[in-house]
Design a binder for these strands. Structure first.
Lengths: 392, 392
DNA sequence: GGCCCTTATTTTCTGCTGTCAATGAAAGAA
DNA sequence: TTCTTTCATTGACAGCAGAAAATAAGGGCC
């Protein structure tokens, strides 16, 4: 066990130090002069900010890599984040299970766990969360490092600053102060955020959004969601709602959506929408998305057509985002990606057709993010809170 | 004439001073303690930042308003921007005319001018701009204050930082370094920006967007455009394209748009689209938007129906923006607002139907902005450059 | 090995910003 | 007149970040 106490603060008290740490965290090992270049700070400022971070053990100097080609002048000393210096927990709460991960400071998953939920009542969920946290804290003891924060991700309208779930349709919650409740129960600092935004933070810091100031993350699956990063910050929306690409209406003649509207992307391309439509079209008794996928892979033309339409809907939705925001990149992810071979072409075609002018230059890429990634996103928000809270 | 030279810099060298000036500019007269509250700075910092601005004449202390109700304690001394301290020019370049305004530092229009364009060639336009600037500079002499900057607004893909018009369909320009050309010709510091973004800046600083960190400005007219402010900054897009609400596709069965796609908002609700559709539907020989409007106001049911559809399209477009970004407010403006009584209801209904969850809490308001406002927007960008350039 | 060249990092010094706490100012109230 | 209240200013000070100069750490060359 380390001798550090839980109250020990992260030693990045200045914006510069905070920025430097984040830069190193995202961009792997960097020499001090590379840091200076990236952050627009002077080399002197970097030296001064890095020292306390190294002394506190959050950064370490890389041992000289032998593989480095010899260059003129004094060799540079790369610095990197010591992932093992701290641990974090991330929990994604869905309607019927909890997915949890224990990660290190670099947000690498060390342990993953799933627990089914028996009830959606806040109290019952809280109990399950507490149990899961206890379990993972025990695991964490094995690493000899303290867990410094817990991130919780919930779908729906979540107020991160207040730590309150304003409204979650899946859980049927309204105004549940989950952050405070969980903090009291677990004794850990808790960061609560919307699930898609949490995943977006993880992508921004550790994934395909690294270094980009404007990108979008589209998740395809049971619902269609979208996390947006504009001006380098995750968009939260003035009323807590943003990135609702699933309810962008692309066809007035389309199927009715559970939101009451017609032709939402989600009413065409979400797993339930696809399954339902395949049932209608083929008459087959398709149980779930897996069965639907199997049917389409078996070559059923009706099923394939449904997937094709879904792809076109997603492509149009993405084009809408591109037309409005002009992001540098769009990352497509989610469980629905399992069907990617069935609608990739349609996504691409619909996007290309509907994107206006140079908005079409936007780089659209796919990235399979296993379900644990959502929990990892929650952990990323905890890391974010930990490394910036004291630095405001 | 003042004794100040053109090279005299704006005396806000620190971020704090810049922020304070902008706050006072947008929020009218403010006492020092109100400034401190709004900017999260200490009262001492405000005092120190305000002094040089007052000494340089950019801020003045309001004479005590007698109408103020007597309050306990020392009366506060409100400070406001002295609009008369500097003048700016703004020019909006359209396909067939130049619209120019001379404004003061508070962006109040002092003189407005219009000049038809005989050619769209960059050289010819530049000559017209130079002539117009000369004329307005002469007018400005009458005020005894120097003109400190020129803003130029052009529709299309404009790179503000580089001062280059990348591509303007209306002018048929590609990669014209207009800022540099105009600066050389006129001897003024030139700020070049996209027209909708310029108008958005004006709204953000002086209009219905004051104090909001997230809002959208939708312009309806010959085209349908949209300026977005997210996290307090105007969105420019990674590839120079953003806010293309006009090319958000809302109906796969809709009319073909000049962009090649089907069912774009612009293909349904722009002036040319409305005029064309009214011709089709009624068979009447409608010359332009004014004639179309007259026909609808006369009660022609076909024409009214076309406007109703246009309203629904705009409402759906706005709902798309609200779903994706969750802005606090959407401001609808543009020449097309002349027909507002014909589609207001449809805009509202379509928006309410298509907005998801609390995205519908977004405040949708209309604001008639006469055509000179576009030129005023250009002037606002010049003011922005002037007051922040030296401040880093 | 000694010396020079180059690049990386650190040190030292300095300017400057913004905060803190105390003080002055300008009313109305007692 | 004196007190109270609120607004504004002052002066001391901590601390950040930049500039320039110094130092470190290699390789190459004689």
């Amino acid at each position: 066990m380390r001798s550090t106490s839980l109250t020990e603060a992260f030693p990045a008290h200045t914006p510069a130090a905070s920025q430097i740490f984040t830069t190193v965290l995202s961009h792997g090992p960097l020499t001090r002069s590379e840091i200076a270049g990236r952050t627009q700070l002077s080399a002197a400022a970097v030296t001064k900010a890095v020292r306390p971070l190294i002394e506190a053990g959050y950064l370490v100097e890389d041992v000289a890599e032998d593989a480095r080609q010899p260059v003129l002048g004094r060799p540079a000393n790369p610095v990197r984040v010591d992932g093992g210096r701290a641990l974090f927990l991330g929990i994604k709460v869905t309607g019927d299970e909890l997915i949890a991960v224990l990660t290190d400071l670099c947000c690498r998953i060390r342990v993953a766990r799933r627990v089914p939920l028996t009830s959606r009542e806040p109290k019952a969920v809280l109990t399950s969360v507490a149990g899961l946290v206890q379990e993972l804290l025990t695991e964490a003891d094995g690493f000899g490092v303290q867990v410094r924060g817990l991130g919780i991700a919930v779908s729906g309208d979540v107020d991160r600053a207040a730590g309150v779930v304003r409204y979650s349709p899946f859980l049927e919650w309204r105004d549940v102060p989950l952050a405070e409740l969980a903090a009291t129960t677990t004794g850990l600092p808790v960061t609560l955020d919307n699930d898609v935004r949490a995943l977006t933070v993880a992508e921004q810091w550790f994934g395909a959004g690294v270094g980009l100031s404007d990108f979008a993350l589209v998740t395809v699956g049971a619902g269609i969601g979208c996390g947006l990063v504009v001006h380098g910050q995750v968009v939260a929306g003035a009323h807590g709602v943003a990135g609702e690409i699933g309810h962008v209406a692309i066809d007035p003649a389309g199927p009715r959506c559970h939101c009451g509207n017609r032709g939402c992307v989600e009413a065409i391309a979400s797993d339930p929408a696809i399954v339902g439509r395949i049932r209608e079209v083929t008459g087959a008794s398709v149980a779930d998305a897996t069965a639907a996928l199997a049917l389409a892979h078996d070559g059923d033309p009706g099923a394939r057509e449904v997937y094709a339409r879904a792809g076109a809907a997603i492509g149009r939705g993405i084009a809408t985002v591109a037309n409005l925001l002009g992001p540098e990149r769009v990352i497509i992810s989610g469980e629905g990606l399992a069907a990617y071979d069935l609608f990739a072409e349609q996504i691409r075609d619909a996007f290309a057709a509907a994107a206006f002018g140079s908005a079409a230059d936007c780089d659209v890429q796919t990235r399979p993010l296993p379900f644990e990634e959502w929990a990892r996103g929650a952990a990323a928000t905890a890391i974010q809170s930990f490394t910036t809270s004291d630095a405001r």
